[in-house]
Structure formats: C-alpha cells, structure tokens
Design a protein around this nucleic acid. Structure first.
Lengths: 220, 220
DNA sequence: TAGATTGTTAATCGATTAACAATC
DNA sequence: TAGATTGTTAATCGATTAACAATC
C-alpha cells in the first residue's frame, strides 16, 4: 500500500538460507586479503548461478557492485551481517543437557552468528549444578524465572521426544517466541510462536537416499 | 522418452523433506492404535495443506486412500519407509570425534532411518583407540582401508574448518560418494560427489532473524 | 575503445493451492 | 441417499535463469 521501504524488499526463503554460505566464503576471501570479488567468480566457487548471486546481494546489500570489477568484500560482509542480525547478540536457553545438548553448549561458533546460550536446564540431578564449557546446568524449576528475568525469547529443545511437548508448553508460558526443536515430534504451539524443527537422522537419511537414486539412474 | 515407470514419477525436493515428518507422525498414530487416517486430519495436525498431503502420499505410496475414510496408517508407514530406503541399512564413517562427533556417535536413532555409523576416525592420539558408545575411534591412517574393505560410500565430516577440504579429498579418493559436512566451509569435489552442508549456528541464527522480523512487522 | 560485469525486465521452471468430478 | 474424502486437472504463486541495456 505505502511505498516500499528497505525492509520490505522481500527476500526469498531460499536466498536467506544461502546468505550464511556467502558470508562464510566472503570471510575466507577477506582473510586472504581479497578486496574485490565479482559475482561470476563467487558463483563458480560456490556452484551457484551468477545472476542468482547478484540478485541475492542486491536483496541484502545497500552498496552496489561496480561494472567491470565487482563488489567490495568488506562492504558485503558488513551489509550481510547487518541484514542477518549478527551484529547484536540474542540470548537463548537450552533445555536438555544430554549428549546433543552438550555438543551445542561446547560449540564456540554461535557468537559469530549473534547468538549466546545463556544456560542449560535439565531434570537430571546428577548433572544439575555442573558446568559445561562455562555454562551452568540449572534445574528445570528455574527455567521460567530465568527466561522472564533475562527477557529471553529463544529456546533450544534437546530433550527426549516424550518430554518435548511439555517442555514446549512451559517455554511458551515463560515468554519464549522461537523454538529450535531437536526432538522428533511435531510441537503444537500458539500461532505466534515460531518453531524450527531439526531432525539430524532424517537429514542424513535423505543424503543416503539421493545417493541410491542417482546411482540407479546411472544404470539406466 | 519411454513411458514413466514407478521410480520416475518425480517427487519435489520439498516433498521429500516432509516425508520424515509424516513418518514420525504416522508412527505415533500407529503406536496409539489408530489404523485409518484422513488427509485433512493430518494436514490439521502438522500445519500443512490437505491437498499437499494427498499429493505427497500419492508420490510415495502404492496403496491409494479410500474416499470417505482415508489412508491405512500401517500401509503408509510401510510404503514411506520403503520409498525412503529405511528398510536396508547403509553404513557410514565419521571423521572427527570432537564434541559434535561424539554427539552423533551417541545418537541411538540412526538405525530407524536405515543408517549405521561403523566407526569414527581422528588424529588425536589421546582418543584414538577408545570407544564411544560402542563405536571405536580409529586412527585417520586406517580410513581409506576401512572404507574400501567395507564398501562404504557415506562419510560425515565433523572436523575443524581448516582440515575439512583435506579430509574431503581423502574421502573422495577412498570411494566415498556422499558427504554430510558439518565444517563451515564449501567443499570442492568432483561432480559425481554429493555434499550436504549442515551449519547449525546459521540455522539457529535464521530462527532468530525470523523472530526479529516478525516482531518488527507487528509494530507496523 | 572494447569487453567484462553490473542491475533489471521477461521467460521459464517448479511447487503449492484451488476447483471439481469420482467414489464409497 | 447425502456428504466427506479421494485423486487429478487447472490456476496461482514463488524462485531461478535467460536476455539485454547500462556502465566503467
């Protein structure tokens, strides 16, 4: 209805998912001292279409490319990080400090993506009170209190499937708005809650299916 | 050119990714004793479109639904598992037994998806020779030997970014055809090699971006 | 200048949703 | 039978790719 402002130039979901890969690659170039890069070169390196690369850049970057030379690597990085929100930190809580939970806690890279896991929560008394990579494991009873007090809106569910819905309901009641769900169940939530499901086993299984299919195709 | 056989009824990438979720839900229904389910009910439960559900089922299932009642839960499960290849086991190797590698090794669920991690490989002498959840951690020098002897075609890369390409090259030379890559770098491979990239931090960051965006939208 | 690269408009491709006849 | 559900064809929506004028 009103004229388009910067934020409303829509970007496709798929393009959004490509951004972290661009960023990864651009940072590598930057560390190697490359200052200017052309879309066709990036497309070649990342196995993408060059027009797609240019369109993706146009969607997130305020600074334009220069005909004959290309884009400024550092400006692209800056614009992309700004766009993706890597420049201001979001806090999150983790529920379930099993092996997956531990792996997530010990992952050092979240900071680069503007994320910080504040603490983990678990019901197992044998690990409650301990520290994992500098993050404390707190009793589940403190979950709501912490979320509210620290104004946290993102939670990671890494509990067994049969506990996930109950944890989810509790999180919603504590003001959590976005949930990264590793439990293999569909969570029922109010409309305004964002749930992103991750199923590692399924993702690996799809790779193996692709492989089998392309194999049998070759035999035709 | 020739008439379409069963295998060539193409299925969309997106539909393929929905399959594990259907399967998850159908199995839950099955365990609760539900024998017949209608597409609209599934769509409602999983927040999907009912026509989409029917189309997805048609793409993978030999048995049709019955007007007025719906689909047989157990037949759907059977057909889907068959289609996804969960009924014959694929072996895989894991490279890098750090915290992520350990979490993957300790995950018990891969078997349900037709997958088996045969062994882990690492260069760190302090963990080589140990066992993690019943899987041995072997020295990297044995990688090629094992892959060839056991005829393994799938590998999981869970090593630091700066080692990933070297590991990848080695894997390709050992006959690996599909790679599940957790290292935050783009891997260069020959055309016939399938690489599936997983970037956990990026995926969480996108959730947080969505959240911020939908928040600022509400304020308009 | 000539030529490589840019940004944008149009065409194509793919996936979802709507419409509707067929069925139990 | 009436009505809910099915499967399929057509319409819509969204994303990618091709074509091309503008630029340095």
């Amino acid at each position: 209805m009103k004229e388009k402002d910067q934020a409303s130039i829509s970007i496709s979901t798929q393009a959004l998912h490509r951004m972290p890969y661009y960023l990864q690659y651009l940072k590598k170039l930057h560390s190697e001292g490359v200052e200017i890069i052309a879309a066709p070169a990036i497309a070649e390196s990342l196995d993408l279409n060059e027009v797609q690369v240019r369109k993706d850049f146009a969607a997130v970057s305020k600074t334009k490319g220069k005909p004959r030379s290309g884009f400024s690597v550092s400006e692209l990085i800056e614009n992309m990080e700004e766009f993706l929100g890597y420049r201001n930190i979001d806090d999150a809580v983790l529920i379930g400090a099993g092996s997956l939970g531990k792996a997530l806690l010990s992952y050092k890279g979240f900071g680069n993506y503007g994320l910080n896991i504040v603490a983990a929560f678990d019901t197992d008394d044998s690990i409650v009170g301990s520290d994992i990579c500098g993050k404390s494991v707190l009793p589940a009873s403190k979950l709501c209190d912490i979320c509210r007090r620290m104004n946290i809106h993102i939670a990671i569910i890494a509990v067994p499937a049969d506990q996930a819905q109950a944890v989810c309901d509790q999180l919603v009641s504590c003001g959590i708005l976005g949930i990264w769900n590793f439990a293999p169940v569909h969570l029922s939530t109010p409309e305004n809650i964002l749930v992103q499901n991750v199923n590692m086993a399924a993702s690996l299984a799809l790779l193996s299916k692709h492989l089998r299919d392309s194999f049998s195709k070759q035999r035709d």
